[in-house]
Design a protein around this nucleic acid. Structure first.
Length: 498
DNA sequence: CTAGGGTTAG
């Protein structure tokens, strides 16, 4: 800015706006503010630039404050000018509206006011492709997938053509298996429309969508048809292969990336760590492990960020799932030495390792330490489930029951079932009965609880009770209506004509 | 101005 001023250019509203816009785009909000304070002039575009900048840096509080400032300015304007024409000028200009929709969609609001961004969208006089895309992305973010599909259809009815951003956004909403048909339709749409069709982002979104459904073969053939692939493409494929248990193939991706000079980053490494550890590929695992410890680079990895929590979690999980429980715990210690901060998942994995490795007292120590000042990781219901599983496995059933009673969450069916399972293993009748009752009262409706309880009765020599329990199971678990969601799903599908 | 990838337990 000083350069412009030195040139003798007066800081009028236009210059001011473009300066603030520039600083905002560079995420230099302090400089943007300095310019703001230079003169008292203000305008909608100026404030919008500021809001956009704050949104990008995640300072939503400031963004809202500026927005409120803008609303006040608008009201003052309304009060002083009564002309209709002037009012028209003040309805949200498209780009202001878009920024606001995006702001509200990303604002981490509590339930209830979630749909504020839809209302803002509706105030935009003539929404363009960006407005629609922002709306769809917002709906997907808040898990209103059906509404997102409806919006996707509505925009076309409205004569607005989806672009590559739109397609990526809507594909993101197809994570649930019930939307397989939607992905196929979008796939066809993309092929037919040719509109930015093989834009790498759209290709990546498709690859990811198919890979999530376990249809990695299709995902791979799509990726091959794309003119080029990047780290996103390969991360999606590696994850998909991992999910199918094809860890060897997941590791083969490293070679593909190497051949195409695609740089590996932290997201990708997390997948490879998980794969190599699951395979117990000793050399590869060690290589990756030492890489993680040293934060260094292996010859085949050109540039990698510091391994982050997720990479470490991948390593720990792989070691633990291979029975290398002590290895998992020492990886946890290495992680601390490397300065990475463990998160909730890390402790879940650590507890799991202790549980399966019979290291109960150590597990209890970790459980107690996790929420202390040292780590500051809040304990979630899942951690309690792990604790109960660990104590139960070790036969410390009373302690496990005590943990359930004193935990700061409402116990659910899962945790009761966990202890019930331990009661079965340790042939503990009375506690087992209690857990089974609780589990059923908490809404468990599958056969598992009955099977376990019947087994406990059998073990205790109460064969008649076991038989009775099995009869109850047949009566109560026979009633299922699997057709419902399919019908609903097909209704939704046929109502969309894209 | 709008979009895309990672770890996970009973």
């Amino acid at each position: 800015m000083p350069y412009i001023i030195r040139l003798g250019i007066k800081l009028n509203l236009v210059v001011k706006t473009s300066l603030v816009d520039m600083y905002s785009k560079c995420h230099r909000m302090a400089d943007a503010l300095k310019v703001m304070k230079q003169t008292s002039e203000s305008g909608v575009m100026l404030l919008t630039a500021l809001i956009t900048g704050y949104c990008q840096t995640g300072d939503y509080k400031e963004a809202i404050a500026v927005f409120q400032q803008m609303e006040i300015a608008k009201n003052l304007y309304f009060n002083s000018i009564h002309s209709r024409k002037a009012q028209r000028c003040l309805t949200y200009d498209v780009s202001v509206g878009n920024a606001l929709v995006d702001l509200y969609a990303k604002w981490p609001s509590k339930s209830g006011s979630i749909m504020d961004f839809v209302r803002v969208f509706e105030e935009i006089a003539s929404p363009n492709v960006v407005s629609w895309t922002t709306l769809i992305a917002g709906l997907v973010r808040h898990e209103y997938e059906v509404e997102a599909f409806a919006a996707f259809e509505a925009m076309q009815v409205d004569g607005v053509c989806p672009n590559s951003f739109t397609l990526s956004a809507i594909l993101k909403g197809c994570e649930s298996p019930k939307f397989v048909a939607h992905v196929e339709k979008l796939h066809a749409y993309i092929l037919k429309a040719k509109l930015g069709a093989w834009d790498i982002s759209v290709g990546n979104s498709l690859v990811d969508a198919y890979a999530r459904f376990g249809r990695v073969g299709e995902a791979m053939s799509i990726s091959r048809e794309m003119p080029s692939r990047d780290v996103f493409t390969y991360t999606s494929l590696a994850k998909g292969l991992n999910q199918l248990g094809l860890h060897r193939k997941a590791l083969d991706i490293i070679a593909c990336m190497h051949d195409e000079s695609v740089k590996i980053d932290g997201y990708c490494v997390a997948c490879f760590l998980s794969a190599s550890a699951s395979l117990a590929v000793v050399e590869m695992g060690k290589q990756l492990h030492s890489y993680s410890v040293k934060s260094g680079l292996n010859s085949w990895i050109s540039e990698v960020q510091e391994p982050n929590v997720v990479s470490w979690n991948g390593l720990i999980s792989g070691l633990a799932s291979n029975g290398q429980f002590c290895g998992a715990l020492s990886a946890f210690e290495d992680m601390r030495l490397a300065g990475a901060c463990p998160d909730g998942v890390t402790f879940l994995l650590v507890l799991h390792a202790c549980s399966h490795g019979g290291l109960v007292d150590m597990g209890i120590e970790y459980f107690n330490a996790m929420s202390s000042n040292l780590y500051g990781v809040p304990r979630q219901p899942d951690h309690y489930v792990c604790l109960v599983d660990m104590l139960g496995r070790a036969g410390r059933l009373e302690e496990a029951a005590c943990a359930i009673e004193t935990m700061p969450f409402e116990p659910d069916a899962l945790i009761y079932k966990t202890l019930l399972g331990a009661c079965k293993v340790h042939r503990t009748l009375v506690l087992g009965e209690r857990m089974a009752t609780h589990a059923m009262e908490s809404g468990s409706n599958g056969p598992a609880v009955y099977v376990l309880l019947a087994g406990i009765y059998d073990d205790a020599g109460k064969l008649d009770m076991g038989e009775q329990t099995r009869r109850m199971m047949k009566e109560r678990t026979a009633i299922k209506c699997p057709g419902q969601s399919c019908i609903r799903n097909s209704l939704i599908t046929t109502s969309l004509a894209f």
